[in-house]
């Protein structure tokens, strides 16, 4: 049975639509909620966490309705997107107060606070107030309050924002392990490759609609049929362009202001990349850089919406 059920959910902000008839299920494990800014991810997260009630449709988590059901939040952990916390408190004080609101007090609250701070890579005995933390440390503290109750369901809204590479890797590993342990983790992001490191299961949102859902590789296969732009940097771009245009994979070439670069349009990315690799070795063209220009999620969405 799905842990999170979103059934025909729509939400309007006045006359502006935030979510339009969104339906999907989330099962145990990690699922990525992907979409560019303004896609409706945060609206959905707010509805899932009972901060606001959807205009239409139904949301159930662990079989229960979310709105006006505070007891359900013993089983849900939420990491909000906004970088706002009680900056006067230390990490431990913050967690103790949050635990107190969850009915955990005294020594048990102290133990849980220390454990979860250590788990996200923060020193439990750090006396610095949160206001003096780096953005990455604040993200970790925010993640800690989501994990403190060891909830079955974790809703993480852009938890990797502002983290340094080491923190990002640690957090990715932590989230992936939580999924493997059987937690249901719904993680929102606008960066595809971040989510790919944790899961292959995604829900794509765009303009408030569920554009695609399922395995990320299947969705990418769909994109492979569309034209893609790739920047190539080499010593002799004219010679490379001539070689590439002889192949069927390349549909267009344009030169840039950089005398050592060209942009290639291809309709068959896999075959194109294989050919570039072969050319780079066999013809001595010395390709120094291959950079897909539209590999970000925004481009993926543009392909999907035509």
């Amino acid at each position: 049975m799905a842990t999170i059920q979103v059934q025909s959910v729509s939400h309007w902000y006045g006359e502006v639509i935030g979510l339009s008839n969104a339906s999907f299920d989330v099962e145990p494990g990690v699922t990525g909620l992907l979409g560019p800014n303004g896609a409706g991810k945060s609206t959905l997260m707010r509805i899932l966490t009972g901060q606001m009630r959807q205009s239409r449709g139904g949301v159930r988590i662990l079989g229960e309705s979310v709105w006006g059901n505070p007891d359900l939040f013993r089983r849900i952990g939420y990491c909000p997107e906004l970088d706002s916390m009680y900056t006067e408190l230390t990490g431990r004080q913050f967690l103790r107060l949050m635990l107190r609101l969850c009915g955990v007090r005294g020594m048990e609250a102290d133990r849980k606070a220390s454990d979860v701070l250590a788990r996200v890579g923060l020193d439990p005995d750090l006396r610095k107030p949160i206001g003096a933390y780096s953005k990455g440390m604040r993200q970790r503290a925010k993640l800690a309050q989501a994990l403190m109750l060891e909830a079955e369901v974790l809703l993480l809204d852009e938890p990797l924002n502002g983290m340094d590479p080491v923190g990002r890797k640690d957090t990715v590993d932590l989230i992936a392990s939580l999924g493997q342990q059987g937690h249901t983790v719904l993680i929102s992001s606008h960066i595809l490759h971040e989510v790919e490191q944790m899961t292959a299961k995604i829900v794509l949102l765009h303009h408030g609609r569920v554009l695609a859902q399922g395995n990320v590789h299947e969705i990418r296969d769909h994109i492979e049929d569309q034209a893609r732009s790739v920047l190539l940097r080499c010593v002799e771009p004219q010679r490379l362009a001539a070689q590439l245009l002889q192949s069927g994979e390349v549909t267009g070439v344009r030169f840039t202001r950089d005398p050592n670069a060209l942009v290639v349009e291809t309709a068959s990315a896999d075959a194109f990349f294989q050919r570039v690799t072969a050319l780079g070795f066999s013809d001595g063209i010395e390709i120094t850089e291959v950079q897909p220009l539209d590999d970000d999620l925004q481009s993926v969405f543009q392909y999907l919406v035509g």
């Binding site: 966490t49 009972g50 505070p70 007891d71 909000p80 706002s84 609101l101 969850c102």
Partner: peptide, 13 residues
Amino acid sequence: GKTLPLLLVRPLS
């Protein structure tokens, strides 16, 4: 202060 979400997702009405 944008801290309200931290309070609304606790198991208290």
